[in-house]
Amino acid sequence: MRLLQRLILLLLAIVLPWASARAERSPGDKLKVVATIPDLVDLVREVGGERVEVSTIARGKENLHNVIARPSHLVALSKADALVQIGLSLETAYIPGLLEGCGNPQVWPGGKGFINCSDGWEAIQVPVVLSRQGGDLHPQGNPHMNLDPRAGRHCVKRICDGLSKLAPEWQAEFEARRDAYLAKLEAPEKRWAALGEQFKGRKFVEYHQEYNYFAQHYGLALVANLEVKPGIPPTPNHLAEVIEKMKAEQCDVIVTALWSKNDFVQRVAEATGAKVVELPNMCGGIAGTDTWIEMMDVLHERLAKAFGIPLPEKPAPEAQKPTQKP
């Protein structure tokens, strides 16, 4: 019996490691890309077109700070040529563990396939002091840059650079697609800017610090957050202060994501008579937000409705389709 056990162990030790070897990509093969959020899936498709196969980890309705990693994520990352992330520690809840476990150094930070979309981005709310007294702080600043109206333009450039390094033979194609997408962005950006001008100075309360880039871009006035600090749930004292402040400042809009529309929000809304506006925090969570442009459209429109701002005419459906291969 003991001899048998030892033989089994020896066999396992010799044979099994070979089963886990990762197959290398051959030139001409599609790039396998894992994106951390659906927004980046859309942008990778815009740049990569038919040259990429891309999947997402987070799904549209989730709290991006609390995504639970699943087996398919580990498998996908172990086979991936590239990982595309927002960065700024947005994905800290799940990416470091997946990277540690996936055994694919190419997609680790510093690896050829690690594409960090926040590189070169000027973050806001960069903490001066790193202390847990500040809640779940992100050392590099507010990570929700995907909700900034300028983010699509920034991220496609990063993605194009990253994919081009991985597959230089397709660089010209990636760059052409990137340029086409940048051109496609011009019309919606004008549309958003027209609405955004009317956002200036409007007061709102949000649950989590998710829409701060958006607010800063248009000059919206953030009155308070329902969370005590980022990631720290509301306490009764804090809610009482928020209610008092909202009344004093005549703020009647509370902004939530799908994951954060909870009892605390309802309580404050009832106490203040404020409207609760459910906004997308990434693509796919709300109907009609499959692309980043659509998601930003919905974000602008819902907020405009909440503030009583009339909406401009909707764009023709053709303008919303993914960019075609040039």
Binding site: L88, A93, P96, Q140
Partner: peptide, 26 residues
């Protein structure tokens, strides 16, 4: 308690702009 190791995720400062208008990595 949750494992929370930060992934180095690049820099926050704006990098220099290249002649083609693209933002160069820092």
């Amino acid at each position: 308690l949750a494992h929370a190791q930060a992934v180095p995720s690049g820099q926050d400062k704006l990098p220099p702009t290249q002649s083609n208008g693209m933002v160069a990595p820092l």
